[in-house]
């Protein structure tokens, strides 16, 4: 998953996936609709990226109901937190390393 040269996580190359992770780092739990609103993306596009993150074990999905409507919420996993922190460190390294 990691690029051996830069240490950057390839999964986070994508703007939307990086956005989802950034939001989940500071919000315990967040709904699909809120994510959609904050990232300004379409349903299908967001869903694809969320599945990708879930398959990599970076996020957890909770399916619930508000009345009869489904309310799917997402939260970050320990592995997700670590991967994100590593990615940030790699970004920092790149900025520092090339002075």
């Amino acid at each position: 998953m990691k690029n051996p040269i830069t240490g950057l996580n390839k999964i986070f190359d994508n703007r939307i996936r990086l956005g989802v992770m950034s939001i989940l780092m500071v919000n315990e739990e967040i709904s699909f609709n809120d994510l959609k609103q904050m990232l300004e993306v379409t349903d299908g596009n967001l869903a694809t990226h969320l599945v990708n993150l879930e398959e990599n074990g970076y996020i957890k999905v909770h399916k619930g109901f508000i009345g009869r409507k489904t309310n799917t919420t997402y939260s970050i996993t320990k592995a997700g937190e670590k991967a994100f922190a590593d990615h940030i460190s790699a970004l920092e390294q790149m900025i520092r390393g090339m002075k």
Partner: peptide
């Protein structure tokens, strides 16, 4: 690449602020 990394970090910061 350095600028790109910086921009990415700023994006992350912005979205964290805006979402919380």
């Amino acid at each position: 690449e350095q600028n790109q990394s910086l921009e990415t970090l700023q994006d992350i910061k912005r979205i964290m602020e805006r979402s919380s």
